[in-house]
Design a protein around this nucleic acid. Structure first.
Lengths: 315, 315
DNA sequence: CAGATTATGCTCAAGGAGAGTATAAATGGC
DNA sequence: GCCATTTATACTCTCCTTGAGCATAATCTG
């Protein structure tokens, strides 16, 4: 892959950079992410000399590891940690993470690559059937215990307040965009396998762990995507060429982790001229057949800049 | 600064990372940024072995170069470019940029550090007195010429459409959040000194240039801040402890580059319980003296998570 | 045909945003 | 002291958006 001769870089400031992808698709109304290493890591690899740009490098790694091409991509965040590796003499290692959106394509996964529901990693994030049971039964009590474990009463109060706001308990409303804050709070409270490894502690909360800080990166991607679908027409990247409005709605709901008022959803989609009828109707459906739609190519150019709106109701 | 022994890293994948800060303050109703090298560069320096984290490194560099402490900080974007350096054998160099918000403090600048108005670099971004003259007189015609210079009619149309949308001409509305897209469009059209250096061309648009891609980074910071003030109470970081509502409004306007309806602004600020009266009145003012306000500390915790609203009207 | 299920059209009330009017409280010049 | 000027502050009004519900249409299953 590298045609250049090997170079020796003599520098205090030399570091290595990893490229990490949160590659999202929605299939059968479930938000799914591409994983490797038996669903315990995100597609990733070092930024190398031969890569022309960060995105090029990322695309190369994802395609090599998963056989799946990368479509729409946007940068998420850059993390740095020497602490994790344990060795204080180790050079800095930074991770540059990206969010990618695609459609699942049959039989293109690499040996070790597979799609997994993102709710496997964050079971408390799915509120489509109402607040999940683990929230009240497991998470809230553990967070309360964590808050109480603080020395000073003031800190106890601050902790619980923060927990209540981010998790939407104790009179506060659930806010699906706070996925990252929730993960970080659980991490801080040592209720996450990844932080227990580091800090010690026991009794983690349900949810599949990942290697390194990949789960944090995934949380970052979820939060970003949940915020973004509301004002940028990015759902498009996840849909097939033709779809019904209900399918579109289900995709949005899958990502947001909450339900949407059907009639209002249609109203908003239609009044924004985002879609046009194909003329055909959906086949093989229960109930009244629905019209098929496609996204209007023309609008995409302007909307990519200007924006869109999506309703996310509370029922 | 580095206590560790020098290490030799032998690796294809070794790279160097720069930390770059867009440090913003608002003084006398003007948005200002901290610069070095005679206002031609942003505070920046390499991420080094001795830095415990990215933010630590950034703080170290900014304080060393400018003597000014760094308050609120958030990450902006990570760029990579070998192309710029010219040497194809050079290792990758990435820039990790941050947005910082502070208050100007007297006489703390380093030798080569100074505050400059950000509109010196982007004169077309200030719409507080209506659309600036250079937009219609210089920029629009040049962009039109660029659009016309395309081979295919379809491309001509696409180019002009894009220009019209991002610059709010030809019937489109001005959108202050598109600062980065505007810079990138001008760059692509070779109307920016930095791109002329690279691509050749002549007849750039007014506006001070910067070293490397610092002006792009600044545009990124402006766009991010303009988007953020609307839903997160970040203006707080830029205000003195006590202020009048008009001063607060002027700060928002300085950042947004557009005016706000006064009465509606007050209504929104007050109904959100963001501020409280100090009891004192502003002294040394023309006209009826205004009440002094301060931000409510308590709210900050929740709002930092939940959000705020600001009105940005079109008049 | 009844019941279930989804699609689609329409209405309504509450709240928010944009914009304007009116009045109050200072200053400086004469 | 009066007036023009400037800023502060209180209300009002209208339009649009949003959340929510009702009603009807078009299918399939048994």
């Amino acid at each position: 892959m590298n045609k250049r001769p090997q170079k020796t870089v003599t520098a205090l400031d030399a570091i290595t950079a990893d490229l990490v992808a949160v590659l999202v698709a929605v299939t059968d109304g479930q938000p799914r992410i591409m994983t490797i290493e038996h669903a315990a890591a995100l597609p990733s690899g070092p930024f190398q000399f031969g890569h022309r740009s960060l995105q090029t490098g990322l695309r190369a790694w994802v395609e090599a590891q998963t056989g799946h091409p990368l479509g729409y991509v946007e940068q998420l965040y850059t993390f740095a940690d020497r602490g994790r590796s344990g060795d204080p003499d180790a050079p800095h290692r930074i991770s540059i993470s990206y969010l990618g959106l695609t459609r699942e394509e049959e039989g293109r996964e690499g040996a070790d690559a597979q799609w997994s529901s993102w709710y496997d990693y964050f079971p408390w994030e799915d509120h489509r059937d109402g607040p999940p049971a683990i929230l009240a039964k497991i998470i809230a009590p553990k967070l309360k215990a964590w808050a109480r474990s603080a020395e000073q009463p003031a800190l106890q109060k601050t902790r619980w307040r923060r927990a209540a706001i981010t998790f939407g308990v104790d009179g506060h409303e659930w806010n699906e965009e706070l996925a990252l804050q929730r993960y970080e709070l659980l991490y801080e409270a040592a209720l996450i396998a990844e932080s227990v490894r580091e800090k010690g502690g026991e009794g983690v909360v349900p949810g599949r762990a990942m290697r390194g800080d990949h789960r944090r990166i995934l949380a970052t991607g979820i939060a970003r995507l949940r915020a973004k679908i509301k004002y940028r027409p990015v759902v498009f990247e996840l849909m097939p060429d033709e779809f019904t409005l209900l399918q579109l709605q289900r995709s949005v709901e899958a990502l947001a982790g909450r339900l949407v008022h059907k009639q209002n959803f249609r109203r908003l989609i239609e009044q924004q001229d985002l879609v046009e009828e194909t003329g055909a109707m959906a086949a093989d459906t229960i109930g009244r057949p629905a019209k098929l739609f496609r996204f209007r190519q023309g609008v995409l150019a302007e909307r990519a800049v200007v924006g869109t709106k999506l309703p996310l109701s509370r029922t």
